[in-house]
Structures are given as structure tokens and as C-alpha cells.
Design a protein around this nucleic acid. Structure first.
Length: 497
RNA sequence: GGGCCGUUAACUCAGUUGGUAGAGUAUCUGCCUUUUAAGCAGAGAGUCGCGCGUUCGAGUCGCGCACGGCCCA
């Protein structure tokens, strides 16, 4: 690592040579007037009026390939908008510029001024009348044909991945577009975009282990948020009747192809509606975003065709357990028989929850995770979640042991979670107290009491429904990515050495 | 946490039963004014992830560790 490789050593010698010839390797006074897109537009719009002399373009970009002949060269360079070939002739740019050009390397940034012509093979090419070095690369880029493949290097040095692999670049362009389209979707429906605390004194809104930090001046512990939920609902109390936030959550758990310790979540809340309305809204939003981003409402994910166009199946948790998990409905309310069933399938529920007495709801949702979730390939809303695993969801009027809640599954992944909110402060307080008791009983991910949130509810919150959608997982679906690391620019990695 | 796989030149990869470390691209030198992974001739470039062990001798065999990938929990 500390030993300079041959190739970099040679590059450094070349740099010293350029410097001694008074070449500024990092100038900052060159005007760039055009993008490669401008040039392509000109070619597409009026190819017949183009000559070697006009129009004249001034573009800049990173040199990606060079074919050198004696006194002329073809190069390929790219900017953010595309890639273009240039032809550099010694008799056109002059002896001085050409001898500088001969010392340039793949990876360097150059500026070219010139008109366009078509080569023998019919490729539009800029014919340089001026050529400048505008930024020098000291390290060599990976080889052009095979590119950069080593996944570790791709994640650690994402910039190289982005330079070398257009598919990777495309994924992140799509990710950006996904977020932009979501934002547009909600703004168009009169939602207000807000930002709520990332550092919270009481971590709430989800079952997860938080990251802990410390505020020196205030002399207090703070937690990186595991969800924005309780703050967004405080805003609903405050009169923002439709709010959304797209931002990071942090959960102190392992990394996998589906989990990164920080991930992006969309949460939104809308008054005077129910979880049923949100299912409809969710379908509408996914359809709109998929169409805008991929051009179609039929996507392919890891070989599965997934239809975002037609309406999605809705079924209860119990029905799903019966249909996909092979669990007879007579078992659903019988803890012991369910536990027997679980162990017959090799599922150790006690180990998973860490609790002395295991709640029925925990057993059911764990069985669901293992037996049903991977089979829900087509988009499916699951409803009817038990109260004990839904401490922020409104109890169902018809069946108070269940809640007005759904989760959305696509391609075997949980994508969204939504429900009608509890707006009765006494009910919410009881639920928190039960969570505190569960925590005492060994459930380390149970919710904490948030007195301040109860106080807010006591001022009155209108009937509201809210939902969270995992943006990384949505991005995985719409870019056909098997791992969450492929849709996060800088996934967390252990430092080397 | 467990299992499997990977780590060799700047990049992508070979490397046989253990016997002087290989290729392509890239780099450097020379020739070349329409190439498309340009071509021709020549050259340089390696702590084989790290450590310990076995052996006359380890990229190769064994043990441990690190980092990464996939799968399972």
C-alpha cells in the first residue's frame, strides 16, 4: 500500500515533467459552453447544416479512451450528459497542443473547441481546433473493456464504479428520479413536505434497536431516529393535515442484501382517511412512479414479472397463513399448537423474540415472516394484524384484537406498512404501557413510553391514516437490483486495516 | 452467529501432482492522419490479503486472522 506502484510512479514522473514545462495541471479559468447533449441535439435536429467549421462547440469531459496514430488521434470522452468521440489532428491544434496531448492520460479532463464531421464509419465526431488540459488524473482508471467488477472495490470506491459502469450510474439516476416522482406525487395532492428530528430523546415509531449518541452541551443521551412517525403525528396535531417526509432512518442491526444500518424511508400522514384509503393511494403512487421511471407499469424483478398496473390482492394475515403457510385456521388462536407447528418446521420462535412468555401475535408474525413473506411475489396487501404487534395502530371496530393495519409485500419483500392511527390518547398510553411491560419481559425491541407524544394526542388529533414505504427496497424493485447495496451510493463497509 | 466461495500486476483473470510468477488490457519506447477493445515491434511492472505451521522448497497443503460476496439464522 505504501509502496508506489510502477504505473503510478511513471504517472508522477510525467506530472513533474509537465509542471517543469509550465503546464498548469489544475487550471480554473476555462469557459465550457456546451454539453455533449447539446452536440447530440444539434446532430439530431439539423445534421445537414453541420460542417467542420460551424457550428463551433466548446465541451469538456473525462477522457475515457485514446487511439493514437502518429500525428492524429481519436479519443472518447464523456460528461454527465453523454459520450462523444473527438479527432485531434496535429495540423489543426498546432504542434504545442499536440505535444501536450501526447502526454495526457485516460482519466484526464480536457476541453475541446471545434466543429463536427462524420467519420468513414459514420460516427459524428468533434474535430478539435483547440485542446486544453483542465484537470489531471494521477491514478489510472480500471481497464476499459472489463471495467471494475470486484464488488468490494465497487462499494468502497463508488466513484470508480460510477465512472466505469454505466449500468450503475443508471441505477442512481433512476433512484433520484424515483424520489423526485414521489415528491411530485405528494405535492400534487396538497401534502406538505417536512423535516423532523434525526436525533431523538426517546426513539420511537418502530420496533428496532437505535444508535445512541450524546449531546455534550445539553448533557443528555440522544438516539438516532428509527422512524419519524411520532413527530409527524405531532405535526398532524399541529394542523398540518397532510404531511410527508423522505429521509434517513437508522437501525442498529446487521447488514445484509436487504438491510443497511441507515436507509431511506418515506412516511406520510393524511387526516380524515383510513388504512383502506392508503392502500388505494399506495397502488396509485407505485403505478405512477413505475411508469415515470421505467416507462411501464409492468416490471421485471429477478426474473419475476410484476404488474403495477392492475389492482393488487388484499388478504388477511390469517388467510395468508392458511393459504401460503399451510397453517390450519383452527391453530390460529392456540399458542401451544402454533409453537408445536413452528418447531415441526424448524422455526425457533423463543430464540427469535427473546421473551419469557411469547405473545400470540409474535408467534403469528414470525411464522408469517418465514412461511409466507417469501411467497408473496405479486404485490399483496396483508391486513388484520394483531393488536400486540401493532402498538401504534387503531383497533378494528369489528374485531378489537386486530388493528386497521396493512403491510405491502412485493417480490417476497416487505415494502410498506400503514394503518389508521390511534388518536385516543388513553388507548395509546395503554399500548405504550404494554410495550414497556414486554420490554421488561425480554423484548428488547419493544417501544418506549413517550409521555410527550401522549400529551400531544391529549390536545386532539383528527382521524388520520399513515404509512411508511422503504425507498431503498422500492429502488431495488424498479432497478431490478438483488442487493440493497446496489441502490445505496455508499453502503456501510468495515474499514480495511 | 453458522455454512459455502473469493482475495495473484493499475483492471479482468489463469496458475497442473508443492519446484525461478503468467496472459489480455493498461503503462513506457519506436512507427503510423478515419480508429471503434485500432495495428506492428520492443520494454518495464508482483509483500500471490496478513500471520503461523508442515516441507529441502508454499501462490499451491494445514491452522488462525482480516476484508468482501452469496446463502442460512
Amino acid at each position: 500500500m505504501n509502496k508506489t506502484s510502477d504505473i503510478i510512479q511513471r504517472r508522477r514522473e510525467k506530472l513533474a515533467d509537465l509542471i517543469s514545462n509550465n503546464i498548469n495541471l489544475f487550471p480554473n479559468d476555462f469557459v465550457v459552453s456546451n454539453t455533449i447533449r447539446d452536440i447530440n441535439d444539434a446532430i439530431n435536429n439539423s445534421p445537414d447544416s453541420i460542417t467542420e467549421d460551424e457550428p463551433v462547440f466548446v465541451v469538456a469531459g473525462r477522457m475515457m479512451a485514446v487511439n493514437r496514430f502518429g500525428k492524429a488521434s481519436f479519443i472518447r470522452f464523456k460528461d454527465r450528459t453523454g459520450q462523444l468521440q473527438a479527432y485531434i489532428r496535429k495540423d489543426r491544434v498546432g504542434d504545442k497542443a499536440y505535444s501536450l496531448f501526447k502526454q495526457l492520460d485516460i482519466g484526464d479532463f480536457i476541453r475541446i473547441k471545434g466543429g463536427l464531421f462524420k467519420t468513414k464509419t459514420g460516427e459524428w465526431t468533434i474535430l478539435a481546433s483547440e485542446l486544453n488540459l483542465i484537470s489531471k488524473a494521477i491514478r489510472p482508471l480500471p481497464e476499459k473493456f472489463h471495467g471494475l467488477k470486484d464488488p468490494e472495490k465497487r462499494y468502497r470506491q463508488r466513484y470508480l464504479d460510477l465512472i466505469m459502469n454505466p449500468d450503475v450510474r443508471d441505477i442512481f439516476l433512476k433512484r433520484s428520479k424515483i424520489i423526485q416522482e414521489i415528491r411530485t406525487f405528494f405535492l400534487d395532492r396538497d401534502f406538505l413536505e417536512v423535516e423532523t428530528p434525526m436525533m431523538q430523546p426517546v426513539p420511537g415509531g418502530a420496533e428496532a434497536t437505535p444508535f445512541k449518541t450524546y449531546h455534550n452541551a445539553l448533557g443528555m443521551d440522544l438516539f438516532l431516529r428509527i422512524a419519524p412517525e411520532l413527530y409527524l403525528k405531532r405535526l398532524v396535531v399541529g394542523g398540518f393535515e397532510k404531511v410527508f417526509e423522505i429521509n434517513r432512518n437508522f437501525r442498529n442491526e446487521g447488514v445484509s442484501t436487504r438491510h443497511n444500518p441507515e436507509f431511506t424511508m418515506l412516511e406520510f400522514y393524511q387526516t380524515y382517511s383510513t388504512y383502506i384509503d392508503l392502500m388505494d393511494l399506495t397502488e396509485e403512487m407505485f403505478r405512477a412512479v413505475a411508469k415515470k421511471v421505467t416507462g411501464s407499469d409492468m416490471i421485471t424483478y429477478q426474473g419475476n414479472k410484476i404488474d403495477f398496473g392492475s389492482s393488487w390482492r388484499r388478504m388477511t394475515l390469517f388467510a395468508a397463513l392458511e393459504e401460503f403457510g399451510g397453517i390450519d385456521s383452527s391453530l390460529i388462536n392456540d399458542k401451544n399448537r402454533l409453537l408445536e407447528f413452528a418447531s415441526s418446521k424448524g422455526i425457533n420462535i423463543a430464540k427469535k423474540t427473546g421473551m419469557k412468555t411469547i405473545l400470540l401475535g409474535k408467534i403469528i408474525t414470525k411464522l408469517f415472516d418465514v412461511l409466507v413473506e417469501p411467497k408473496l411475489i405479486k404485490p399483496t396487501f396483508i391486513t388484520g394484524y394483531p393488536v400486540e404487534v401493532s402498538p401504534l395502530s387503531r383497533k378494528s371496530d369489528s374485531e378489537p384484537s386486530l388493528t386497521d393495519r396493512f403491510e405491502l409485500f412485493i417480490a417476497g419483500h416487505e415494502i410498506a406498512n400503514g394503518f389508521s392511527e390511534i388518536n385516543d390518547p388513553n388507548d395509546q398510553k395503554e399500548r405504550f404501557l404494554q410495550q414497556v411491560a414486554d420490554r421488561k419481559a425480554g423484548d428488547e425491541e419493544a417501544h418506549c413510553m413517550d409521555e410527550d407524544y401522549i400529551k400531544a394526542l391529549e390536545y386532539g388529533m383528527p382521524p388520520t391514516a399513515g404509512e411508511g414505504i422503504g425507498i431503498d427496497r422500492l429502488a431495488m424493485l424498479l432497478t431490478d437490483s438483488a442487493s440493497i447495496r446496489e441502490v445505496i451510493l455508499f453502503p456501510h463497509m468495515k474499514p480495511r486495516d
